[in-house]
Design a binder for these strands. Structure first.
Lengths: 92, 92, 92, 92
DNA sequence: TATCACTGGAAAACTC
DNA sequence: GAGTTTTCCAGTGATA
């Protein structure tokens, strides 16, 4: 049989493509499931946006979140007043 | 001339469409300008996401922001511990 | 026992959060697996970018069809108001 | 004078915020104007939804063309690797 | 009022 | 590890 090498490669290619496509399907289903849970929570009166925030924050490094809050506070202070509050930072 | 009414309507339609399209262009340009400012700020070392947050919060009613923060804190507490912190709320 | 409602809600909140976090973990693992397959294919001499394009094209057909249907619906809606195709000249 | 750097940064931050807020206001006004035009057209007997569709279709052509070009690029990239069109049979 | 669709931003993932 | 692209979600506006 001619082109044995090509067939060999083609077989592998087919295999890779089908494996990937199968996993993409699983991933897609998983995303749909997650969305479904949020929807369910919403149906019970929970605030979806806040819930997403909770999951995000819990997934963050602890200090990471606090730091981002501090930066936000600093920006808010500076934007809202004529002078820097404590003069203890270069802002960025 | 026949179809005077139709032409009349067509003239108005043309006018409406062109006026709308012109304003849509202006709006598009404005959005691009705003994005440009954020980009400029970023180039000076400011954190873009935080900056957007500042603008958003400043545009919110004051109590509104504080309330959303309190709800977030409550959710975080509940999600992170086995019991409710103060027992003074129905959560939602 | 007092506060049954709050504890009930808290239990649900914890349940939602843990279910979501668990699924997010699965999703994360799945993404890693997919990446692994691409890596394996690359090791066998396949061009990763091309392989991704193949998967994308194969998955795109359905979506493309639906999108073209939506555009057709738009045209039909306009045409249904006597603006297309004969009256087209009156539009611009 | 100490802290010149911080004040400098603070001034810039305030400037960015006020410029953005001003432009957001303009954008808001523009959106209101567009809505007003649609309302005016409606008052003259035009169907608002159809009118919006007309504007959308007229604005869509360019984008649609670019999208089809991207799809073509995908195909060409795959074809450039000897997978299309003759070797198509080996793919699936 | 509430749902639907769309635009625009944030985050994630792949590439180099 | 940085930049770019892609995917996802929040917010806004229109419609019923």
């Amino acid at each position: 049989m001619a082109r044995a090498g090509a067939n060999f490669a083609a077989d592998h290619l087919r295999s890779f493509v089908s494996r990937i496509e199968r996993m993409e399907e699983e991933k897609k289903a998983l995303v749909a499931d997650i969305r479904e849970i949020y929807s369910e929570a919403k149906g019970m009166g929970f605030d979806t946006k806040t819930l997403r925030n909770v999951v995000k924050i819990r997934g963050m490094d602890k200090g990471e979140y606090e730091e981002s809050q501090e930066i936000l506070d600093l920006y808010l202070h500076v934007a809202g007043h004529g002078m820097l509050p404590e003069d203890n930072s270069d802002l960025v």
